[in-house]
Amino acid sequence: MIRAILGGISLWAIPVLLVGIPLIGMIRKIKVYDVFIDGAKEGFNVAVRIIPFLVAILVAIGMFRGSGAMDLMTNALRPLMARTGFPAELFPLAVMRTLSGSGSLAFTTDLVKRYGPDSLIGRQAGTMYGSSETLFYVIAVYFGAIGVKRTRHAIPAGLIGDFVAAVVAVAVCAWLF
């Protein structure tokens, strides 16, 4: 029921917004087409301005993964994680989730196939994937778009959020399933 409502909202939200917003503009006697073009002009610049930021971040992460440093790091930290009770199989995913969206999707799909989609590990992996966004991608895109170079506490705060989300995802699944 709730899922059907949310699904309907997701399906209709964009068409309704695309017509509804100009409709209210028309009622308020705004030249909607002229105003649209005026705002839309910025679109190209914004998208292009992101390129250097995104190239820098994705290349560094791509090199890190390509060298095998990623595997080395997770293997080194695995015994430490095992002591905390965090499932060792899921730890690489937790690290990857903050770095790479496509990488963590591949990791999750692999875990789901290996352990089964209805297994505890499979569901924990799926929940971890669904519980956060790719931190470094988000930082690169949003700060890149406005040219902010000093991100201050954005990365520490994001990492704490991702850490809590991962721990809660694992714990809630273990408790519920």
């Binding site: 917004l17 105003v35 649209f36 679109g43």
Partner: peptide, 30 residues
């Protein structure tokens, strides 16, 4: 890793142009 990622980054950015233009226009109307 470096070469592929550089390509992906540009594809993502350029892929945003159309949708970015659309929403910035609609947002200005809003």
């Amino acid at each position: 890793g470096a070469v592929d990622s550089a390509k992906t980054a540009v594809e993502i950015s350029l892929g945003l142009i159309g949708i970015m233009t659309l929403w910035l226009g609609i947002m200005r109307v809003a």
